[in-house]
Design a protein around this nucleic acid. Sequence first.
DNA 1: TTGTATGCGTTATCAT
DNA 2: ATGATAACGCATACAA
Lengths: 334, 334
Amino acid sequence: MASLKDIAEKTGVSIRTVNRALKGDEKIKEATKKLVLEAAKELNYIPNLAARALKSGGGYEVIAVINNLHEMHLRKFAAMEKVLRQKDLLLSIFIVEDENCCEDLLKRLSLSRPAGAVLMADYDSQEQYDLIKGLWEIFDQQSIPCVGIDLDFEGMNQVVLDRSQAIYDAVQYLNKQGYQKIAYAGIEGAFGNDERLLGYRNAMKNLSQEESIFLAPPAVGDEARVESGKLAMKFFMDLEEGPDAIQFFTDMMAVSALQFCQENDIKVPEDLAIIGFDNQPITAFTQPPLSTIVQPVEKVGEISGQLLCNLIKSSESRVYTKMVNADLVVRQST
Amino acid sequence: MASLKDIAEKTGVSIRTVNRALKGDEKIKEATKKLVLEAAKELNYIPNLAARALKSGGGYEVIAVINNLHEMHLRKFAAMEKVLRQKDLLLSIFIVEDENCCEDLLKRLSLSRPAGAVLMADYDSQEQYDLIKGLWEIFDQQSIPCVGIDLDFEGMNQVVLDRSQAIYDAVQYLNKQGYQKIAYAGIEGAFGNDERLLGYRNAMKNLSQEESIFLAPPAVGDEARVESGKLAMKFFMDLEEGPDAIQFFTDMMAVSALQFCQENDIKVPEDLAIIGFDNQPITAFTQPPLSTIVQPVEKVGEISGQLLCNLIKSSESRVYTKMVNADLVVRQST
DNA sequence: TTGTATGCGTTATCAT
DNA sequence: ATGATAACGCATACAA
């Protein structure tokens, strides 16, 4: 690997001059600059970022903490990596698996001190919440700049997806389409349910319409969550005056509701409009294809990366919260 | 941030001794060792990776190269991380996106020289294949121990999933269940199709039965692949003597075939048995639930991690190829 | 406009 | 068993 020294020797100028030529921002004679740049190219010079990092104090790796390998998270992850790579930061990953994660993280940190961290974790239970919060506190104590994605710890830098707004918009859309009675079906205590419910409630308030809400009992695992969709359908169909449009908590629920409709001869979207949430791959292929809400995960990843870069560079203490909007994908179920 | 120097000053010993105590592998008096370790803990010492990398060319991190964020890959990834973490190796990730990946990788390597690498990439086209191969060659040239997962570059350390065997077993199973005419439906030129087809052919040869194969035209994207399933069904149903069991290339194809059956009153598994491939989440919830083939990705990840650890430690030049079997999950579609 | 010299935190050689 | 010191490649204060 060619170094500045090599270029200096080849061109006969000093290291310092090579440095200036490469940086381009200092006073330097055009001729020497050209000479150096050519030599650099010829020698296939690549700066040694480790040395650079060492000199300028900062580390060069960012550690991403993740406890859920959903594709969605990984798309955020990829978008973030792209941003970080441009800033010569390297992304390393720490997967949270069990209750020992705090100790594990400490041990991980004893191996190397990252320049920054991103916390990208879901929680379904109080224990999980506490665990994740514990991880954040570690970063906080160690003064490692940290950005949380879709978390809500006080005093933490955040990038937050505004699911509330997304649901609000979806309800508004349904209303504009002429649907009269719009319902929400969620799962009690599930991660993100309250937020979506809030969006629904705000929208209904804004439309001066009466709420119609079903919350399935807490469900763990895909199977239970599919079941929740059917439970919701049963609930609404038994109502005297059932809804003609339902916003579901997740695509899973919506898909199983769609199945229910098929089995019970309910025509979608004529008798009932259905909207899911997440734009899972399946949704494009259901009968009819499901309208759903896309979380712009790439954007979230990008913004998180940028925020973190800024925090690392500026080492300022102001706490940011960045909101990102989600969008409605209209297919044939509405 | 505390450095070796700080510890040295605090304890009154030299930097070199601190270094020895921390490494633990050199002759050193127990008392001084203890003293140093305590001081290190007290000062919350974390080694500076940049300095380490600068001096010794790195050696504590493994870089995983990945070009496809399928959940499956990520489960391998997680399993691997677990193994590596136990060996105090950090896992960092490098996501391949475009044709510049080789340059990018070189730049990445200038940041720090990893102790090892794992190449976990899919390819659908010759260009992609060449690109990935280029990445491998970089590792190879730089003498960085590298393990490939499901690749087939000559001279490369490999962990390979035996999909051929899996299909072979599935066909044998169908035969034992009494199905008379077993077919295979795949996609021309798709990644892994040939391998599965080979398993089918071998099984049919072994059973002395006549092959019945449909290969859909090359399809890119989920939608096209779903369509392939229907194409296959149309093909087989138009046959004079159609199959009573079909092994599909992917779950996607199988699921859409299942839909086709529903729409055309073909009873599964009475009239037709269907087996997918991959055990995607949906498969458990189709009507009827789909039998499919699980790739034991965790095992693959684990073995890859172990293999890499061995390569790093022993730095031997022997080339390994480890085969891992896939298993059949029997649900109600067979 | 260009060069000299120093130090970042580690590792490792060579002394003691 | 321990210490002094050089070196890794880069950035930069200071000198010329």
